[in-house]
Design a protein around this nucleic acid. Structure first.
Lengths: 225, 225
DNA sequence: TATAATCAAGTCATCTGATGATTTGGTGAT
DNA sequence: ATCACCAAATCATCAGATGACTTGATTATA
């Protein structure tokens, strides 16, 4: 059995207002009725309306201007996609991160500078290989390297999304697998830097995919069992 | 000049609680102090605390259980990455969407079925070429085709993120360029289907990138001017 | 007339206090 | 040992009031 979650009044209100927004009853730029009117329309108290509006603001739909009103900012939900991603299965999360990783490597290859290459090599040096102790520190250094590759792409969107998926995937692994996936070794990492250094986006992309292929295979095996 | 935004009490409270969460003062699974205590700690009223908590719930950090308490759900922010994306420049948005598009084409090539290929061809047929009238309808049919390609990847994460970026990019174009970018023609679209049909992810990826290359070039030119 | 200062209405921001609904753990009867 | 019941804890919601800010109209002034 799967009891349907009785949604709270706030959730209902969020849904009601959201549907009016995406349904273009209030197009982008439009001013919403004030809190008193909304609370009338929805038959809920002003405090509840405020919580609902606050949620929609945090999701990027609305903007409130004190003394002026509440306005529609966008019809794209900046929260739903990644909220869904959180509930998706590990494979889908991995594939999404791979897409970001590969694209970042492409752009980094195009936009690289000698300084960036040097920095990446330094970070990889620092990372080293896992020596059996200080697991957390090793994971952190490994992540720092990968994030640096993405950061070097000079694309802020990729950077933020990569951060999210990194955290999400490690949390999901902890929650579902309990064990860690095998980490590629230094040589595989170095191959990525080498590919980026050539300046060829195709090679950089391919290097990342070669890098991730065994991890994905491991994953499919673990999820199948 | 750029006046610093005086943040509201709610925003400050959100920041304060968030930092405690990511700072592991309250690790995942932990129960937060109740609303009365939080309002004491932060020196704000309970209603304000509730708005802050509600925001953090909508961002995936927290979960409230009536009668029990408020618990930490995750340390990954499901809202910040795409909120940032909204403020990013159009080029970065495009590159991110391209990453999704290319990865989706790869997966679709691997997971394709004859039925899927047939459906894509039908959608492309329906789309047709722009005949000068009913611009909105044409854009909708074009989007339906591209979404179908992503949907066929069988990856829900890619689907949701693609939806978001599609909406975001069209809104950004409207807000910044005012004019539309040139749409690739039927032949370029058909090439994507053909590549997917071969079942080779490399070819599918390449087809998508060939498809998008002129659009990206246009974009760079427009943004430079 | 054109411009600047002032004012008032509208609106969101916040606080306070109270009541309802739900969960949870304990208590006692069976 | 199990079940029914109860009470405390906690979130959910409501109501009313005050403060802060924006905006457009009004008025005074050069």
């Amino acid at each position: 059995m799967h009891a349907l979650a009785k949604t709270s009044l706030v959730d209902s209100a969020v849904e009601a207002i959201r549907s009016e927004i995406v349904g273009s009853r209030w197009p982008v730029g439009e001013k919403l009725p004030n809190e008193a009117k909304l609370s009338q329309f929805l038959s809920i108290s002003r405090g509840t309306v405020r919580e609902a509006v606050r949620v929609l603001v945090s999701q990027g739909y609305l903007e409130t201007r004190q003394g002026s009103g509440t306005y529609v900012l966008s019809t794209a939900d900046a929260s739903r996609p990644l909220t869904m991603a959180r509930r998706a299965n590990l494979r889908d999360q991995f594939e999404a991160r791979l897409a970001l990783d590969a694209e970042a490597a492409r752009l980094t290859a195009i936009r690289q500078t000698p300084a960036v290459i040097a920095e990446l090599r330094t970070l990889l040096e620092k990372r080293g290989n896992f020596d059996g102790s200080d697991k957390a520190g090793f994971v952190a250094r490994d992540l720092a390297f990968h994030k640096a590759v993405v950061a070097a792409s000079c694309n802020s969107v990729l950077v933020h999304m990569y951060d999210f998926f990194s955290t999400l995937i490690s949390e999901t692994i902890e929650a579902t697998l309990g064990e860690e996936l095998q980490e590629p070794d230094m040589a595989s990492h170095a191959a990525i830097i080498d590919a980026i250094e050539t300046g060829d986006p195709e090679k950089a992309d391919a290097a990342v995919r070669r890098f991730m292929a065994p991890v994905l295979r491991d994953l499919e095996r673990l999820l199948a069992s």
